[in-house]
Write a protein that binds this DNA or RNA. Structure first.
Length: 399
RNA sequence: GGUGGGUUACUCAAGUGGCCAACGAGGGCGGAUUGUAAAUCCGCUGACUACGUCUUCGAAGGUUCGAAUCCUUCACCCACCA
């Protein structure tokens, strides 16, 4: 029983520091029901969760099955600094309303995966604000600049002459202090968080709270391009609130190699089942596309339900395989004689009339399934289905 | 505080007075093809009812027939020195 739990916990992890501690915590839970805390931090600036986040959430959910109580930490204070990812040195300060709004949508999404009853939501502004300048200085004295520069992000940016704001140095310290305050037993995060996660251990020791958190790191999920990490700013993400057909379609668009990565990190299938599937595909017993369809179906089902997921699959096949039209096309009303290029812009299919012309020249635009080549066309009264490329549609009623 | 270097389109990055709406790469979009929105090949990628006009090269002025390119001021970044 414990063995099984530990296997599940270890699945897909990139690195675990202090596995012994985790083993102790889990076995104590099985002995006398003592629970333990698992901390994970989230940034309230981006209210849209994507599959990259769910890798962590799924791991948290796993812990919840085996005695973990999740400390779902909202980094409302640290969000003001911004994690030193090299993107922007400082972020705009969010208003209270924005944060409240973001968090509401955040948690709603997160509870599609997490067990709400075993989750405690905490805000680091609650204690970090009270820390004050003196507390901050005390905190900062725990770390040397040389040590800080060892951190990968920093050394790279320093070497490539990318600016580093001094406030960014505070980020790992504050995150570490969160662990001191919360007396976390385990903290999980992405591999890119290693430095910050270890800071928690170090500070817990420095502040002498009689325990040091174990650290579990999950690999960073690659985005749809298969190379860069999944992130909203790169546009290579699958959002958990996206429509079923989008989730389904996007999963289907990943490369075959990436599919196995997604299986390991996102699927609920056991590792041995996945191995089996892999060998079936390589021996051509199972078509890779089938494997991918099943994955897409499973992921879509997780965020909706089986019925909607199946519907998404059918819709996808109908639109992209059989080249049928999607079922839900947006409608627009326009005035008689409207220029086709303008109509495309008004219907949101094109960003500019210039782009419309280019696309018409490239044979990308059709009206009622017929390609057009005349970019000077004006529309008479009637109803038309405008289409750009394979997947942008609009219904236009000209009056 | 001093000295020097930098700021170009979504990103990276050429361009040092007219040939610049601006090389190239990535990304994006489209076409063909397919097992998919994969891979591959090809094309497009500032705006405008458009073989012309307009607005872009950190910001504002200036020199010039003509500026992304020269000058001045300002902002931001980097390096070295203090």
């Amino acid at each position: 029983m414990i063995k099984e739990a530990l296997e599940e916990i270890g699945r897909g992890t990139a690195e675990i520091i202090d596995m012994e501690r985790i083993e102790k915590l889990v076995s104590k839970y099985y002995d006398d029901g003592t629970t333990y805390t698992v901390k994970a931090g989230f940034d309230p600036t981006a209210p849209d969760l994507h599959l990259g986040h769910t890798v962590l959430l799924q791991k948290l959910a796993t812990f919840q099955k085996f005695g973990g109580r999740v400390q779902f930490l909202i980094g409302d204070f640290t969000a003001m600094i911004g994690d030193p990812t090299g993107k922007s040195a400082t972020r705009k300060v969010l208003t209270k309303e924005e944060i409240v709004h973001n968090i509401a949508s955040y948690t709603e999404q997160a509870f599609k995966i997490l067990d709400e009853k075993k989750t405690e939501i905490v805000y680091n502004n609650d204690w970090l604000e009270k820390l004050g300048a003196a507390g901050m200085l005390q905190l900062a004295s725990n770390l040397t600049v040389a040590r800080m520069l060892e951190r990968d992000d920093f050394s790279k940016r320093y070497a490539s002459n990318t600016p580093i704001a001094v406030s960014e140095f505070m980020y790992p310290l504050l995150q570490g202090y969160d662990s001191v305050y919360l007396k976390s037993d385990i903290e999980i995060g992405g591999t890119d968080q290693k430095f910050n996660l270890l800071m928690g251990r170090q500070l817990q020791k420095a502040y002498d709270i009689k325990k040091q958190q174990a650290v579990l790191m999950m690999p960073i999920l690659e985005g749809l391009d298969g190379i860069q990490k999944m992130s909203k700013s790169l546009g290579n993400y699958i959002g958990v609130t996206e429509e079923p057909k989008n989730i389904y379609g996007k999963v289907l668009s990943i490369s075959d190699d990436l599919m196995w990565r997604y299986y390991e990190l996102l699927s609920e299938k056991s590792l041995s089942d996945i191995e089996q599937l892999k060998s079936d595909v390589s021996t051509r017993t199972v078509h890779p596309k089938t494997a991918k369809e099943n994955l897409a179906l499973e992921i879509t089902t997780r965020f909706y339900n089986e019925e909607l997921a199946t519907l998404a699959k059918e819709e996808f096949n109908s639109v992209f395989k059989a080249n049928n039209m999607p079922t839900d096309i947006q409608e627009f009303e326009m005035i008689e004689g409207i220029w086709i290029c303008q109509a495309l812009v008004d219907a949101g299919l094109e960003p500019s009339t210039s782009q419309s012309r280019r696309d018409i020249k490239q044979n990308a635009v059709s009206i009622d399934q017929k390609k057009i080549s005349d970019d000077k066309l004006n529309l008479d009264i009637g109803e038309y289905i405008l289409q750009v490329g394979k997947r942008r549609f609009a219904k236009v009623k000209v009056i």
